[in-house]
Write a protein that binds this DNA or RNA. Structure first.
Length: 677
DNA sequence: GAGCACTGC
């Protein structure tokens, strides 16, 4: 047992949550047809407010709807609107940040309406569209509605757009705010069918939403949240891992074994180490202490192991789940009584000056802390230990910085231009990204040849318009569009698909030597892109065999996704009438094609053995996951930079320096000039 | 010489 060197969580607060804590999406709906669907619907808290809500919503162009967990707003509001004929002349769209939520919710609602999924109620997510001409209530991912908007910026199919989970502020929802607002205005001006916009959120910060939508009224709904006790530490903790460990075992000694614990940590490595430590300690607990089962949970964990967190522990045994913030929103686990919140999260930052993405451990926001707290008390009252003092908590940021202010904006700017937004520089964002970030994105699009000035207006070039057709980062769309010139479109499609999903290479740390010897047969001395290509080709040769994947340390789930992505991209190429050729064994053309589209991501070996980027002369290193980690090629292009302890290049390809200069002579002349100055 | 929060099109 670790001694309580860290303070025991001490300060007892009244079971008072803030007025409206940021809460969670409804738990994934179980697939069942309730015997008394109607009486169940009527028993929801929202049902009492039905009449009032509808008379409000009927009169309003826009409304903000705040509802806590369990209010049933997401499943009921679309049905209410449909039942009284609001928006019969068009489809009611409900957006969700995640695919699984869109699918689960549409299933639930179509069950409640006693209809077949895909008829009256349907869903549209990438690779999967279950809607028909009859569909009047349509759940879709926010990214999907945004993509639809490119084809129809006024969203003419829809009479109502409901943006759900707005408090999560995903980049897609943030862009949609502006898109639906513009569509609403335009439709009004043209005297067309009005577009009703409903923003649904669980946030405390409603003023911003209301203000943005021209002072739209805010409607509140009651939820069904059980009380949660919150404890802070007396003193700041210098070691949150140690503090978490102490808390877990204190709870374990005091609480009945049927009550499970969820601990929020920052990343895979930390979680695996903590899992081991907990298991070791749990082996040597004193007699009479209940047993403990410790489970790690993070996104890259194989699916089968993720599923284990849903199994109830056997009687007399406590479940302890050590999780990243995947358990904050994406995965809901029943039966959690205790939350241990370290107050830390690993999150991405973006600096437009350097184009660098940083992945850093940092403090959560207050909203995030409330979100974590709310993960207890779903079925019954809960208890949350915050491993920081109340004073520290008061100093946390109120809200998490929206994604749109932490990202490279090249894709967003390309989409806005494709939507024919009059001026992307002054687009009406709810939270404006920094002008530097916007400028950097425009410059990147300019380098790729996607934009031009026409009558002092920034517009897409024909190439840029084609780029917007692909669901990819602009640089990858460009790579595909360049590929016919190098007669290697088949191979580029494969490489781009492989790069746009999570890695297909499975690297269990415990079996490192085994992985290395098996992987040898795929490794290309020309870099990661070509190594991935040879993994893909081998996979195709065995006909997508699961056993082969296991034997070769290939992540089968991600490989299947690659096949879907590739098919989608290939379809788009066909629609654009591109010739699709294979370069077969000629890798030179593939690398030339990559050099021609990724020239802004190039690095050269220096005399002292280090690498510097060609672009800004930034000191960089080859990422340890690269097959070129032990090599010193003279010149490479890379997929992106990641700043952790060092600045790493990820996913490399060996190229000829001459190819880069051929690809963009103006760009490099400019770079040379600035370098000399 | 040593590392990978989470989504989504």
């Amino acid at each position: 047992m670790p001694q309580a060197g860290g303070q025991p969580p001490a300060k007892r607060l009244r079971a008072a949550l803030p007025p409206r804590p940021a809460m969670l999406p409804a738990p994934p709906a179980p697939r069942r047809v309730p015997p008394h669907a109607d009486s169940q619907r009527r028993s929801l808290p929202i049902f009492q407010a039905r009449g009032k809500l509808l008379s409000h919503l009927r009169a309003l162009d826009s409304a903000i709807l705040i509802g806590e967990t369990g209010s049933g707003k997401t499943t009921q509001i679309p049905q209410y609107l449909y039942e009284v004929g609001i928006g019969r002349q068009g489809i009611i769209a409900v957006t969700q940040p995640r695919r699984v939520a869109a699918i689960a919710l549409s299933t639930r609602v179509s069950d409640e309406k006693k209809t077949q999924l895909g008829k009256l109620v349907g869903y549209t997510v990438r690779f999967d569209d279950l809607t028909s001409d009859e569909t009047r209530i349509k759940f879709l991912t926010d990214g999907m509605l945004l993509r639809e908007a490119i084809g129809d910026p006024m969203l003419r199919k829809y009479s109502v757009v409901i943006l759900d989970e707005a408090h999560e502020r995903t980049i897609h929802t943030d862009v949609l705010f502006g898109v639906v607002k513009a569509a609403q205005k335009k439709r009004k001006e043209l005297g067309k069918l009005p577009l009703k916009v409903i923003v649904m959120s669980a946030t405390m910060d409603v003023d911003q939403f209301s203000q943005y939508f021209n002072g739209a009224p805010v409607l509140y709904l009651e939820g069904r949240q059980h009380p949660i006790q919150i404890f802070y530490t007396k003193r700041p903790q210098s070691d949150y891992l140690q503090a978490a460990l102490v808390s877990v075992f204190q709870i374990h000694q005091e609480a009945p074994p049927s009550q499970d614990i969820l601990v929020f940590l920052t990343g895979q490595e930390e979680i695996e180490a903590m899992t081991k430590t907990c298991r070791d300690i749990a082996k040597h607990l004193p007699d009479g202490c209940p047993q403990m089962i410790v489970m790690p949970l993070y996104a890259s964990l194989p699916y089968s192991q993720q599923l284990r967190v849903f199994q109830p522990a056997r009687k007399g045994c406590r479940k302890v789940i050590l999780s990243t913030n995947i358990a904050e929103t994406s995965i809901t686990i029943a039966g959690i009584k205790y939350i241990v919140d370290t107050g830390m999260v690993k999150a991405k930052k973006y600096s437009p000056e350097t184009g660098l993405e940083m992945l850093a451990v940092q403090r959560v926001s207050k909203a995030q802390a409330w979100q974590r707290t709310g993960r207890a008390g779903r079925e019954d009252s809960g208890i949350c230990y915050r491993l920081y003092t109340e004073d520290e908590f008061e100093k946390f940021d109120k809200m998490t910085i929206p994604e749109i202010q932490r990202c490279n904006l090249a894709s967003v700017m390309l989409q806005l231009l494709a939507l024919r937004v009059p001026n992307v520089l002054t687009f009406d964002f709810m939270s404006k990204p920094s002008p530097d970030a916007v400028q950097a994105a425009i410059e990147q699009l300019d380098l790729l040849g996607a934009v031009e000035r026409k009558k002092d207006q920034l517009v897409l070039t024909p190439l840029g318009r084609k780029m917007a057709a692909f669901p990819l980062e602009p640089k990858f769309s460009k790579t595909i569009l360049m590929s016919p010139k190098f007669h290697c479109t088949e191979e580029i499609l494969t490489i781009v698909s492989l790069l746009s999903v999570d890695s297909v290479l499975y690297n269990p740390p415990a079996r490192r030597d085994e992985v290395q010897s098996i992987r040898k047969k795929f490794i290309s001395s020309e870099g990661d892109y070509l190594t991935l290509l040879s993994v893909y080709r081998a996979f195709k040769n065995v006909g997508g065999n699961k056993v082969w994947c296991r034997e070769n340390f290939v992540n089968c789930r991600n490989m299947m996704l690659v096949l879907d992505v590739r098919a989608q991209l290939r379809d788009i190429c066909v629609k654009l009438s591109m010739p699709i050729e294979s370069s077969r064994s000629d890798t030179g053309n593939i690398r030339r094609c990559l050099a021609h589209s990724l020239f802004m991501n190039a690095a050269e070996l220096q005399l002292d053995g280090t690498y510097r980027t060609v672009d800004s002369h930034q000191l960089v290193a080859i990422h340890p996951s690269s097959v070129l980690f032990h090599c010193k090629p003279a010149c490479v292009v890379y997929n992106g930079l990641l700043h952790t302890n060092k600045c790493y290049m990820r996913d490399l390809c060996v190229v000829d320096a001459d190819w880069l200069y051929d690809a963009a002579p103006d760009y490099f002349r400019r770079k040379l000039r600035t370098a000399r100055n």
